[in-house]
């Protein structure tokens, strides 16, 4: 059987979901954002909730998320996505409302909004991309940048006396009574992609069950910011990011 015989609609096993449109994404080659976007789009398609989902895009690389997923979106001021999501979900309780935020957005400028949305137990899903760097602005130090990790604002590596410790905000959110599901995932292998998809789906489902806030941290790469190839970035992430931000569920009720 040759290739042209195999390439037949009846043999189709994997295709881009139509929820993700054909606009080419602006992300750098190999960026984790694309995989996570794809997973969210697939979940929206599989759950058949395209008409019931409202996404909140952050400031950062994912500011243009609204260009790629064909759902209604609001783009928030830097860090304020959980405040927008709070109001939207309270006014439209039968909608799926999720935020998509990076580490600078969620764990630095938006710390207050994040913690208080979680503390109120808003019935939203928070998708948190942690790549330990500010990608969009050119690779500056983030709250989650590892000790010794170089960035354009920690060119000699993050120094604890100067910059403080990497902020493990997900651990903090797991302690809050308002959260029902807090998990840390990655998308660097087939297995991790599958697990991450299940986690995001669970977060979406929770938001309709009045259980509280779900947080899915996705430890990610920023190969441009890290100045490595995408494959090297994945390896570096496993070796260096995972010990600081270990994989798995922190809370699941």
């Amino acid at each position: 059987m040759n290739v042209t015989d195999i390439i037949n609609p009846s043999n189709l096993v994997y295709d881009k979901t139509s929820v993700m449109n054909d606009t080419p994404m602006h992300y750098c080659p190999g960026c984790s954002h694309g995989v996570v976007h794809k997973l969210i789009a697939e979940i929206i398609e599989e759950m058949d909730i395209q008409d019931k989902t409202i996404g909140i895009a952050p400031v950062g690389c994912a500011v243009f998320a609204y260009k790629y997923l064909d759902i209604d979106w609001q783009q928030a001021a830097h860090g304020r996505a959980p405040a927008l999501a709070t109001a939207i979900k309270r006014l439209l309780p039968d909608r799926y409302v999720f935020t998509y935020q990076g580490d600078g957005d969620l764990a630095a400028i938006g710390t207050a909004e994040t913690i208080h949305a979680c503390n109120r137990g808003e019935n939203i899903a928070i998708i948190f991309i942690n790549n330990g760097i500010y990608g969009m602005t050119g690779g500056q130090m983030a709250p989650t940048t590892l000790e010794g990790m170089k960035s354009s604002t920690s060119p000699h590596g993050r120094e604890i006396p100067l910059n403080g410790y990497p902020l493990n905000i997900t651990n903090l959110l797991a302690q809050m009574d308002g959260t029902c599901y807090v998990t840390r995932q990655a998308v660097h292998t087939v297995a991790s992609v599958r697990k991450c998809k299940k986690a995001i789906q669970k977060a979406f489902e929770n938001s309709m069950q009045n259980k509280g806030t779900s947080v899915v941290e996705i430890v990610s790469t920023c190969n441009s910011g890290w100045k490595m190839t995408p494959d090297e970035s994945n390896k570096w992430m496993v070796e260096n990011m995972f010990p600081e931000y270990p994989m798995g569920d922190l809370k699941n009720i």
Partner: peptide, 12 residues
């Protein structure tokens, strides 16, 4: 947060 909640609500 208040004004951003207004933003979110107004957006709907």
């Amino acid at each position: 947060a208040s004004i951003n909640m207004v933003y979110g609500a107004a957006g709907c």
